[in-house]
């Protein structure tokens, strides 16, 4: 199965994936194929991480995403991955991508609806 691996500790919330996708899919205002969620900034006052900051960005796929099927057929990358300024997204077979997990950052797999 194909999908996108995101090393979201490094996501900077730059919106490139969102805009690249919107333009490719011809989406309008408030419509996204991929959308970044933002958590924080917030300083922990409890638990083991007390005194440290949480400020995390993480993209999620919407119903509109088809992993840029028409692009990947031609050998091109999905728009979001191609334009990820933070180098934190990779596209491919999940079996292959899983080898990149190293426990040194938080990761998420994103897989869209099968059309």
């Amino acid at each position: 199965m194909k999908g996108i691996l995101v090393s979201y500790d490094f996501c900077t919330g730059c919106h490139s994936c969102e805009v690249a996708c919107k333009k490719e899919l011809g989406l309008g205002k408030e419509e996204y194929g991929i959308k970044i969620n933002e958590l924080g900034p917030h300083k922990y006052e409890n638990g083991k991480k007390t005194g440290t900051w949480e400020w995390t960005f993480a993209p999620m796929l919407t119903k509109a995403c088809d992993l840029c099927a028409s692009r990947t057929e031609q050998g091109k990358m999905p728009m979001c991955v191609q334009h990820c300024q933070a180098w934190c997204m990779a596209y491919g077979e999940l079996d292959e991508l899983v080898k990149k997990l190293d426990g040194k950052s938080r990761y998420a797999f994103l897989t869209p609806l099968e059309s």
Binding site: C14, S16, K23, H83, W87
Partner: peptide, 24 residues
């Protein structure tokens, strides 16, 4: 009519910001 980043450009590796992606 359309802009995308050039992955073969070593300077930015195709990773355009949202402003250039909106050049149209």
């Amino acid at each position: 009519v359309k802009v995308e980043g050039d992955p073969l450009d070593p300077a930015a590796n195709g990773r355009l910001c949202m402003r250039c992606l909106d050049l149209v």
